[in-house]
Design a binder for these strands. Sequence first.
DNA 1: GAAGTGGTGGGGAAATGTGGGAAAATTTAG
DNA 2: CTAAATTTTCCCACATTTCCCCACCACTTC
Lengths: 148, 148
Amino acid sequence: MFRGVTQLSLDAKGRLAMPARYRGGLMSFCEGRLIVTADPSKCLLIYPQPAWEPIEQKLNNLSSFDPRTRSLQRLLVGNASDVEMDAAGRILVSPPLRQFAGLSKEVVLVGQGAKFELWDEEQWNLQIENALAFKDGGMPPELDGFSL
Amino acid sequence: MFRGVTQLSLDAKGRLAMPARYRGGLMSFCEGRLIVTADPSKCLLIYPQPAWEPIEQKLNNLSSFDPRTRSLQRLLVGNASDVEMDAAGRILVSPPLRQFAGLSKEVVLVGQGAKFELWDEEQWNLQIENALAFKDGGMPPELDGFSL
DNA sequence: GAAGTGGTGGGGAAATGTGGGAAAATTTAG
DNA sequence: CTAAATTTTCCCACATTTCCCCACCACTTC
């Protein structure tokens, strides 16, 4: 399971060096094969390839005519890109994905359990601001009875 | 299974070069035989021929008198066109289909599981905007319990 | 201080996307 | 029915992009 925030930078070619402490695990778990895709929160998601497959399966089986479902399929499956770590442990983030998440040079990689999130540093800081005191509204019902 | 966006351009003759990473799979799976048809979302759908057949079967067996069903049959079956990849991995998109989807020179090919979607680049970007935060309304019920 | 690990940048070769042109086939006019 | 013209299909060639590999710099560790 991944956790923690790492400040990183994208190089001029759009390459992202995965932090060394994850490389061993990623190589043994998925031979460095990762899926990068778009998230509704305007960041990118990075999954080890085996962890992504069942999610894509579920999405594809929602063969609904509901336009909101179609939109979600387009966002997640449509933007998913297969990448492989190079010898230096770097992955290439494609221009459309970089543009989608508004990534500049300074980015932040955030461990989130089975996946990572990749944010532009500035937008990550805003995100943290919003997390304070549930600024977007009240507490969602699914958190009833939840305590830290 | 296909995934990911690819920015492409239609040449002056209306030809579309399938990305090289799909060509091997398409040649072995269907000898380069594809079906291009219209989608209700004003984009085009591209199926490997074997994947299309059962869909057309099901549509034809909906011998309903519901005018919405008839319309859907007309759209999908009526516009379906057989195409074959040439030696350079290109397919020809017929003028009526290009006009239907409003395709200019800059287009986007989007992998969606067993099929592709083909969008004019501008309209694809609008589509992605709409997918963010379910702008079209709340969350569809079939997504209950779904998590990324 | 030296050696190893981790982050960064750059260059060259191969594969890919794109355009143009020639040949073949089909259609239309004479 | 013949011939010409237009459309379609196939093939080749160029220019760009992408990928892979190597080298350097900084920092940590022994």
